[in-house]
């Protein structure tokens, strides 16, 4: 049992204070609220580069641009700006397993996902918490289906992802104003999809044989005001801070060459909807997530081609 006789400091992370002088408008009036500027079927632009860490056998860096808000007042804290996504991935291996490890006829894949302490507006701890472990497990399932494991018996490969900038779970104004119990971790979905794509690039960079390159994609069903009414909509690559309410979201890890899904994760519930709202099925959600995955696949292939060209001195 934990020691209850002592008075311990707060165990979790702390939020950086937001001083009112930087907040020009109160968050409640909502005029500062960011909104989605791109159409529903267009994912964010992605920057992907492989071979960024010289000491690793394979590495990649992925970045999703933070959407530029033209309307917002330019003054303010950087931490209040809308979030982007920055991930770096290193792959070490295939390397021999330690002597103590039992024999394995195929490669032992281990994945680590860690938020940097400064990755989100609320600081993260130094020890991996349950969300990070969760991401690691999902990533492992996504990659396990791609790597041809039995080409490396008795060896292991470590995939390590550091999240330098993580997607926020909601707009900071919502976070601050309400004590909403339903603060679901929507940011995690985009992070996972990015993790899959960046890990795939790094694995290719490490030269590990795969059946195909896997890429991640997210789609979500959102509810937002349209005129006076609320309406639901399906969007690719949602940015949680841009939407007032996300009903459900789906991440897939997709192999375009084989039309296979190695990992799928749906969060939230679609129904019950109000009478005038358009209804969607979970299949629609998954299909659109696949479309998003195809988008990131194109970037992935482009980045890999670029690296290959560079290596061949073309």
């Amino acid at each position: 049992m934990a020691d209850r006789r002592r008075i311990n400091g707060p165990t979790g992370g702390t939020s950086a204070p937001v001083f009112s002088k930087y907040v020009i408008k109160s968050p409640e009036d909502g005029s500062d609220r960011p909104s989605r500027t791109r159409p529903g079927n267009v994912p964010r632009k992605m920057f992907l580069k492989t071979g960024v860490t010289p000491s690793a056998s394979g590495s990649a860096y992925l970045e999703l641009e933070a959407s530029k808000q033209s309307l917002t007042s330019t003054r303010g804290l950087a931490s209040l700006s809308t979030s982007g996504l920055k991930l770096t991935c290193t792959v070490h291996g295939p390397r021999p397993l330690p002597k103590s490890a039992p024999f394995s006829p195929h490669i032992i894949l281990s994945t680590h996902v860690k938020y940097a302490p400064f990755a989100t507006r609320k600081r993260r701890g130094y020890i991996r918490d349950s969300t990070e472990r969760d991401l690691g497990v999902h990533l492992e399932t996504a990659l396990r289906g791609v790597i041809i494991g039995d080409r490396w018996p008795k060896s292991g490969v470590d995939v390590i992802i550091t999240i330098l900038e993580g997607e926020e779970d909601q707009w900071w104004g919502d976070d601050r104003g309400r004590a909403a119990a339903g603060a679901e971790e929507w940011g995690m979905m985009s992070v996972l999809s990015g993790c899959v794509t960046v890990a795939s690039a790094a694995i290719v960079d490490a030269g590990i044989d795969c059946v195909d390159v896997v890429s991640g994609g997210v789609a979500a069903i959102i509810r937002e005001p349209k005129g006076s009414l609320m309406s639901t909509m399906l969007v690719l690559d949602p940015v949680p801070s841009e939407h007032q309410e996300i009903l459900a979201a789906c991440v897939v890890a997709y192999l375009p060459g084989r039309d296979e899904i190695t990992d799928i994760w749906v969060r939230g519930e679609i129904g019950p909807l109000r009478s005038n709202e358009k209804s969607f099925s979970y299949e629609d959600l998954a299909n659109n997530a696949v479309q998003a995955a195809l988008g990131s696949h194109r970037v992935l292939v482009g980045a890999l081609k670029e690296t290959a060209d560079m290596k061949m001195h073309r």
């Binding site: 992605m46 920057f47 970045e63 920055k86 988008g295 990131s296 194109r298």
Partner: peptide
């Protein structure tokens, strides 16, 4: 489209790589 989807590196990324 690949060209379309591809973003130019941010200030951070371009400093790094």
């Amino acid at each position: 489209q690949a060209q379309n989807d591809q973003a130019s590196p941010s200030a951070f990324a371009s400093t790094m790589f």
